[in-house]
Nucleic acid binder design. Structure first.
Lengths: 345, 345
DNA sequence: ATTTTAGTTGCAATCGTTTGCGTTTTCGTT
DNA sequence: AACGAAAACGCAAACGATTGCAACTAAAAT
């Protein structure tokens, strides 16, 4: 079995020195003769010595591990964020322990508990759709635990937030649609308790008014699930109703946009000539579907990387959390594909 | 700061009892008076006591943490596997520490090192494309560390492998194409050092011969990257060449299949009437594109869940690794969509 | 009154590593 | 030969929890 992992004591015994000496020799501390250092290192290599990180954590009350709490892993955007987190954490010598909440408030809380038990050095959090109050996070902050929120960020004191410019992204997308001549633009919106949904709605509104179009509240339709199936159904309903037909859809996410696209095709409408569509997130499939789906790209990898950098800087006291007063906002980029560009004739 | 996390000692001091008593009281050990238990538990609750998992790990030489080594997180299939791993690990009280290798052999090795340092209880591994020799895994197995491989599995002694029935999946897909009347079927194959690629090629071959079609080696085209861009380019080349035009594509993965689809559309070919296409993995976008992409569904979630169950059973000695002699193979399912069903007229 | 016995609790070692401080050894100097 | 200083190393406590064993108390049995 996996017994026999050599420890400092083993080396010490074999060499007839104390553990202290071995420890210091391995770390090249002053006050140890070169001869001893050589012998210790040699034996360590021979025995394939590996420091016990657990013992170290206990001693130092630091685990060199950060905890990531995320709604779901199976989600293109979040997976890119994780990738960014992983890269930075790894390169700076930290481990990443991951839990997904599946959008459940209870799991969010219990994840925090187990992570605390595991003496996590800090948290990286994107909260669940179910979460309505943020006391569990506020408590952590009050106790001095470093937390950096990303994407889905709470409005609570002392929180450090990394997000993308949802407002600008939405604003750009809708402005683009207007410039293409679309006038009756539906917004397939996200759950209204998420700040990101609100920001995108705000961007939608402002783009319309800034271009002299009055906002028709009935054109803002909530798609709480954000799946293609849901929005396909909703869109089909809309197209069937006897009100004036919309001529464009701006989705809170790409899935919603695709659902709308499919519903429009079902209804025999031509995209982009009859209906223009823009999504949000720029999932991989945007470039794979026909017509290509215009979308607002969110820099997921950078977001994960940035959030992790800030977190680790705080943990390592290179950064004082008090000094960070405003959120970090990463730019979005509107990628224009065929779904929203009217073909001239 | 985050000082002041209460320990057993704190409770002991406050109550004028020993740490042993507190420890036992909290765990409802016999030999502690009800009175003491009550007082201890009360104070523990009041102080918001949380056992220090690190200290426990050190004592027990067990961390209740499993390490997951995966090529990349940003990959639909792998993310579903992670999700399955997370679910099972979580429900059984284990943490998951995650690293991605980005398909690099070196990172695979260093990941193993840090995980060993962190005293993880077992490994869940899908190895990288770069990995050619498996000594680093064999060594671990020899030392008695529990490892369960999934999806990309090595052919080494004592390895426990969980995989999907790649052979059957490919066989079914190609048989389906043949039954639809497609005759000249190209296989956009994966890297040949991966067993999964080989199995899919074998399925492709057998399906052809079983249906009386001779295998034309030139129709097996390797797409090492497995991206849509790559296969689009390769497919375009094929269609341009002056050999007989193929009438179907079977992709080693969905990206490759989509690339072929786009190339065919570029070339003005009708899908499915001129060309049939089937992919592998059943990524989310398969149902979102037009025409819907037929694909072989791999049960990623189940794979992650199953692999984790086996690993934890071994860790908890409910299962003897010696007894597992053959790989666990999960069934695939061919999902037929429009891309491979010829429209009758 | 003495011994049992059951019921409670404490001592101390342990897991592997680090580190302040004290001790020993070595060597140069006078 | 004797002293001092520098160099090299060891002791022991600490991190937080667990646990075999011993110890203590009080009530019951003899």
């Amino acid at each position: 079995m996996k017994l026999g992992q050599a420890t400092i004591k083993d080396i010490a015994r074999e060499l007839n020195v104390s553990s202290s000496t071995v420890s210091r020799a391995l770390k090249d501390y002053p006050g140890i003769s070169d001869e001893t250092k050589r012998k210790v290192k040699e034996l360590a290599a021979k025995l394939n010595y590996r420091p016990n990180a657990i013992a170290l954590s206990l001693r130092k009350s630091r685990s060199f591990t950060i905890g990531v709490i995320i709604p779901e892993v199976v989600h293109f955007f979040f997976s890119t964020v994780i990738s960014g987190i992983e890269e930075v954490a790894n390169s700076r010598g930290y481990n990443v322990i991951l839990t997904q909440t599946n959008e459940k408030y209870d799991r969010e809380r219990s994840s925090i508990e187990t992570m605390l038990s595991n003496q996590i050095d800090g948290f990286l959090v994107s909260y669940s759709k179910e979460t309505q109050d943020f006391d569990h996070f506020s408590n952590l902050l009050d106790q001095g635990y470093p937390i950096v929120f990303f994407d889905r960020v709470p409005q609570i004191p002392k929180a450090i937030n990394v997000m993308v410019d949802d407002y600008r992204g939405a604003y750009d997308a809708v402005s683009h649609l207007i410039r293409q001549g679309y006038k009756r633009i539906i917004h397939l919106a996200g759950p209204k308790n998420l700040a990101i949904s609100k920001e995108r709605i705000r961007g939608y509104r402002d783009a319309l008014t800034d271009h002299g179009i009055e906002v028709d509240e009935s054109l803002i339709v909530e798609c709480p699930l954000g799946t293609d199936t849901e929005s396909r159904k909703i869109t089909t309903e809309i197209l069937k109703s006897d009100s004036v037909r919309p001529d464009a859809f701006f989705g809170n996410n790409d899935m919603a946009a695709v659902g709308a696209m499919l519903a429009c095709k079902d209804a025999g409408l031509q995209i982009p000539n009859d209906v223009g569509i823009v999504g949000f997130s720029n999932w991989q499939f945007c470039s794979m579907i026909d017509p290509g789906l215009s979308s607002v790209a969110q820099p997921g990898f950078q977001m994960g990387a940035k959030a992790t950098e800030i977190l680790l800087d705080i943990i390592e006291k290179k950064l004082d959390p008090e000094q960070i007063t405003e959120s970090v906002t990463l730019p979005t980029e509107l990628l224009i594909r065929k779904s929203s560009v009217r073909i001239k004739n």
